[in-house]
Structure formats: structure tokens, C-alpha cells
Amino acid sequence: MDKIEVTFTLNEVEVTRSIAADSRLLDLLRYECGETGTKEGCGEGECGACCVLLDGLPVNSCLVPAFQVCGRSVHTAESARPTDLEKLNASGTAQCGACSPGVVMVTRFLTQNPDVARDVDLRQFMSGNLCRCTGYDGILEGVKSVLGDHERIDSDEGPA
């Protein structure tokens, strides 16, 4: 397999790597950059464990070809704000932790886009992050805790 060179910004730091041409962003992060915080749960873009922010938007890194990341910015769970992690943890967002980094990145997206956070039904919005441990209540409590009192449509609070 031929090699390509990819230069991109990872958690605010510019990095360059020479990688196999058919690498996924997930492989680039985990194996070439040693940022193992992003997990591979399924390899098919279903579970969201591999979710990172690409130019500020949540993506499944198992579906992003590494060659498309040149010149772009990627943020992973390792860049999360400690106060966000504290709030998530205090709400029971993490149990086994395998889905957690993906959840953290979607949370980050919401904090950076309060207009989106205001518009969406949180339960629906978090549906791209599959979790087998929590039943999702701990995750939703955590995300709400981080978002604070933004006005938001939330099916949990609607009529039964």
C-alpha cells in the first residue's frame, strides 16, 4: 500500500504523518498519532464511539478517509475541558467508558453551538452514541449539566 503525507491540526497542534493511503482518520489518530482516546466500537459508523470533531462538526472517524483531513482541524476527547469532564462524571455519564469519548465530543459540539443545543431534542440528538451500560439517563443528565440552563426542547420534559 502506497504512503501519503497528511498534515492537519490535532487538538490545536499541527502534526504531520506519513501513513498508508487507505488509512481512516480513526487509524491516523490511534495508531499514527498515539491518541488512543478515540475508540473503535464497530468500524461501520453505527456506534459513535469513534466520534471526533472535524472542523468543529461531529463525525465518525471510522468513516473519514485520512487523506481528506489535510489542512483541517480535528479535536478528540483528550482536548476536553476538565470542568466538562467533572460535570459529566458527577452525573454518571461514564460506566465502562468505551462510548464515553464519543459522548464527550458531541457534548463539546453542543457547547460550541448553543443555537443547535437550543433547537434539538437532546434524546434524539444523542442517538448516534450507542451505549450498552447506562440506559442513557446518566449520559443525558451529564450533557444537560454541561449545557447549563440553555433553553432547549427536551422530550424528557414534555407531556407523557
Partner: peptide, 11 residues
């Protein structure tokens, strides 16, 4: 809060 939670969340 879970003692291993912060590390899990932060990757």
C-alpha cells in the same frame, strides 16, 4: 462520582 470516570471520559 466514579473514581475512574474522568480518565474514561477524557480518553
Amino acid at each position: 462520582p466514579r473514581i475512574d470516570g474522568i480518565d474514561k471520559l477524557g480518553g
